[in-house]
Design a protein around this nucleic acid. Structure first.
Lengths: 172, 172
DNA sequence: GAATTTAATCAGGTCCCCCTGCCGAATAAT
DNA sequence: ATTATTCGGCAGGGGGACCTGATTAAATTC
């Protein structure tokens, strides 16, 4: 009976959480400097997995038009996050490789420990982790299962990003 | 000892979660239609709390320039989410009021039950709620405490949005 | 009534995410 | 060799979040 309203309340908490975290770590002001997991960020994620990819390949995998890709790669290159090289074999192709700076930038994105975790004690953090893991698993499966759709590639890339990280973390 | 690496793993899970939820509810495709809690969305949030505000007042409270405000209000008006009226008392002033459509749009933003909750059973959902509540409280206090700064108003508006909702939910 | 203070608008600008169109250069196919 | 295909670049566009500057119209103040 009350399940629905309980869910609503949970949903509200989640939304509040989303907003509060945004307010807290003030993306608002310095929106320029921080890159997200879309646009340019996507490309970094992909390159971190597989470097030295042809620009075209990037476009295909991320489900972007070659033109958008060119734009983003260009911007990344300007920031020295990536590097463009002409392929020797096929001189139409431009290979894109991540620079050290690019790799650092990427690390800064997803390796930061959210400050709000300090509001939870150790036990609670563990609980939180478990819950997240469960939801992540579910989401991952769901996304993978419908991954045959047109724009499945992006999903794959992002999923892999995290499965890799998990593995890296798991070497106990 | 292992606390740091544990935190890192938690951080990774959170990031994964963030990304997965984005992939899941495909903001990617229809980015245009969905409004966020910034820009135009902010204004809706504010109006939901207090309708029929002068445009200037909106700018002040949301810490936006009058020009930006005009732009966003214009865009919202084009979508029939708000309505502009000239004040009778002071004909310089434009009052902005939320339309039914605008209210609906806002509801759609924050009243949706995230689908990933289905991956948790009832107990887990409760746990999740508790953890979120705790973090929200912490975040809220932190944000409020530094709220004397220049751009405090926005925070207040958003915070109120959620405290109100919570109260609404609490009438058992 | 004239000067000043307001609210709002127009004009431009910066940067982000993305797309369609078109064009040249390089390679593959015939 | 001559097409056809492929890659990438340029031009231009649409939408979003914001901002500074200059201007108009309607108060308020002196």
């Amino acid at each position: 009976m009350s399940t629905l309203s309980e869910k609503h309340q949970l949903a509200e908490k989640i939304w509040e959480f989303t907003i509060l975290t945004r307010l807290d770590s003030d993306d608002d002001r310095q929106r320029g400097s921080r890159l997200s997991f879309s646009g340019q960020g996507k490309i970094l994620v992909l390159l971190a997995q597989e470097d030295n990819l042809p620009q075209k390949e990037i476009a295909t995998r991320l489900n972007l038009t070659p033109q958008s890709t060119a734009e983003f790669v260009g911007k990344l290159a300007r920031k020295h996050y990536v590097h463009k090289t002409k392929s020797q074999k096929d001189r139409r192709i431009t290979l894109i490789q991540l620079t050290g700076q690019g790799r650092d930038a990427l690390k800064n994105i997803d390796n930061t420990i959210p400050s709000y975790l300090e509001f939870l004690d150790d036990d609670e953090q563990q609980q939180f982790g478990k819950l997240l893991a469960k939801m992540n698993l579910g989401l991952r499966e769901r996304i993978e299962s419908r991954d045959n759709s047109i724009d499945g590639k992006m999903h794959k890339v992002m999923l892999q990003h995290f499965t890799k990280q998990s593995h890296a973390g798991e070497n106990k």
